[in-house]
Design a protein around this nucleic acid. Sequence first.
DNA 1: AGACAAATAAGAATTATTCTTATATAATAA
DNA 2: TTATTATATAAGAATAATTCTTATTTGTCT
Lengths: 153, 153
Amino acid sequence: MDKLGENLDRFRRSCKAKGFRLTPQRIAIYEALLACEHHPGAEDISRAVRTIYPDISMDTVYRTLNTFSKIGLIHPVDGHGRPRRYDPIVEPHHHFRCKQCDRIIDFYDERLNRVSPPDYILQKFTVSTVKVTLEGVCDQCSQPRKSTRAAEL
Amino acid sequence: MDKLGENLDRFRRSCKAKGFRLTPQRIAIYEALLACEHHPGAEDISRAVRTIYPDISMDTVYRTLNTFSKIGLIHPVDGHGRPRRYDPIVEPHHHFRCKQCDRIIDFYDERLNRVSPPDYILQKFTVSTVKVTLEGVCDQCSQPRKSTRAAEL
DNA sequence: AGACAAATAAGAATTATTCTTATATAATAA
DNA sequence: TTATTATATAAGAATAATTCTTATTTGTCT
C-alpha cells in the first residue's frame, strides 16, 4: 500500500476505534490535510474541500480539525497558534519556518531527534515532548525576484 | 548596577537610539514586562500597569508591545501565539511549557545553545534562530493538591 | 514657553474560533 | 431495507485577541 493509502487506512481505523462516524466531510478534510503542503490552517482546508463540497461550513472544518487533533491523527503546529495550523505527519520530524512567507517546511534529522533536556529539568518536570524549531528565510524568499511572500516583512 | 537597572538602562538607550519617546506608559509597560514571571501577555501587562495608570488603554499596551518587539527589546514567545506572550530576556535561553497551567519557564543549557541544524538545511535556508522547546507537566501541577492550573485539561 | 511630530484613549472594526440550534445522516439493529 | 437514534452538520450568532481610526494629548527639540 502506498503512503496515501496507509494514511487513509489509519484514518478509517482511528475513526472506527473511537466510534466516530466516517462522514464524507471528514474524509475530504483528512485528504485535504494530506494534500496541502506546508501545514494548512482551517482556511486552507476549507478552500480545498469547497471544490468538492461547496457547502461545507467553517464550523465543520474547525470542529473536525479539533476532533482529529484529539484522536492524535494530526497535531497542531507549535502548541500555540492563530491562525492555527496542522501537521498530518505523525512520525518524528522537525520544522523550519520562513519568517517571510510563513511556509513551514518539514525536515528529518536523527541527531535532532535525540536532543535531550538537562538533568535538572528532567528531575523537576515531566517532559513529554522536545521540539526543535528553526526560523529564518527559505530558499524561495532568498531569491529577490521570485519570492512568494504571504506575510508582512 | 543591578540586573533591573541594567535592563531599564538598555531600555532607555534603545528608545533614544531609535528616536522613540520615553513616555510614562512605555516605562510602566517595560517594568511590568520585567516584573511579570512566566512570560506575560497583553492582558497581564495591562492588569499590572493599571494599578499605576488606571486609564491605560489596551491599544497602547498592544501597540507598545509591538514597538518593543520591533526594536528587539522583547521577543514574542514561540513566533505564533494568541494570546501572544512576551519574553523580556534577550540572552540565549530555552523554554519549558506546562501543558496544564500554561506557565512558561525559562532554563539555561549550554549544550542546547549549541544544537545545530543539519547541513542540507543550512545549504538551502538562512537559519537565524534555533529554538528548543520542552512541553510537559510542571512541578506544581504534578502535585495533585496544590495545582495552580489556569488552562483546560 | 512654543511648535510639531509622535503617542495616547476610546471605541469601532477585523480575524480566528467556538457556541447554539434546528436539520440531516451514518451506523446499527429489526 | 428500512426504521431508529445518536451523532454530525450548516447557518449564523457570540466571543476573544488584536488592529485600525480619529480626535486629543504630550514628549522633545528649539
